[in-house]
């Protein structure tokens, strides 16, 4: 049995009169990649901020392993153009980080060549790698990543997810991340937690993608997309359009495998 890093029990969160989280349960273990998935405004970021200790839950229990070191990778970073800051200087903001540990962390995330670049001048994908390196500098037991692939093209996204898996294997840390495309994280995640104010379902990605709660939330098409890599069972018409098997399907031009 691997060690539990964080445990949330019956967590409620209200902003003004709005209930954002209801009875949320979450557990992250050492060495495990947990992906939080859900529609916009479902409370994913709120849940993550509670895990990080940036927000205090309205009620419920939040337990963190005593002395837990968390490496956090925020969704975006905006540094004023007037602040002259190279990648190395940015990483030096972490206490105890020196040149050697910084170059090592950058090498681990495949961004060693960026050491002397100004942080304002690197691309979105490069910035994600630098932010990941900063999280690693803390020698984290738990990595928390808020939409780690935002603003990165699809091939870059796949690469980043593979990188996260590699880092999990190398550092042996637990990973909690937010994503909204289950089909991309299928291969690289151990457990998916589907959130829409409450936990709709959770489990192994293949299991979740066929769960009725998940299908209801994302529609059969997304669920189908998640399975798409396993089966190619749709038909094309003469123009190459995908022909739905169910005649009433409202969006005939999108891929679906409801006939599966």
């Amino acid at each position: 049995m691997t060690e539990t890093l964080v445990r949330l029990h019956d967590v409620q969160m209200r902003f003004a009169q709005q209930a954002v989280l209801v009875d949320a349960q979450l557990e992250v273990h050492q060495g495990e990649i947990v992906t939080l998935i859900g529609p916009n405004g479902a409370g994913k970021t709120t849940l993550v901020r509670i895990v990080l200790g940036l927000l205090k839950a309205t009620s419920g229990q939040v337990w963190r392993k005593p002395g837990l070191r968390i490496g956090y990778m925020p969704q975006k970073l905006h540094v004023e153009a007037t602040l002259p800051l190279t990648v190395e200087r940015f990483l030096r903001l972490v206490p105890q980080a020196d040149h050697q540990t910084i170059t090592q962390a950058l090498r681990d995330t495949g961004a060693a060549h960026l050491l002397a670049s100004p942080v304002q001048k690197i691309s979105g994908g490069e910035l994600q790698r630098v932010l990941l390196a900063r999280a690693l500098l803390r020698q984290p037991q738990l990595l928390v990543l808020d939409e780690p692939v935002q603003g990165v093209d699809v091939s870059g996204q796949i690469e980043l997810y593979q990188l996260i898996t590699r880092i999990r294997n190398q550092y042996g840390c637990g990973v909690l991340m937010i994503s909204h495309d289950l089909h991309l994280v299928m291969n690289t995640t151990d457990r998916v937690v589907c959130l829409n104010h409450h936990i709709c379902c959770s489990g192994h990605p293949a299991q979740v993608s066929t769960d009725p709660a998940f299908v209801a939330l994302f529609g059969a098409e997304t669920a189908g997309l998640a399975l798409y890599r396993h089966q190619h069972d749709h038909r094309h018409d003469m123009q190459g359009h995908i022909v739905p098997s169910i005649p009433c399907c409202p969006t005939p031009h999108k891929e679906s495998n409801q006939d599966a």
Partner: peptide, 8 residues
């Protein structure tokens, strides 16, 4: 540079 990152 980043307030929340610093807080964590």
């Amino acid at each position: 540079v980043h307030e929340e990152l610093a807080r964590v």
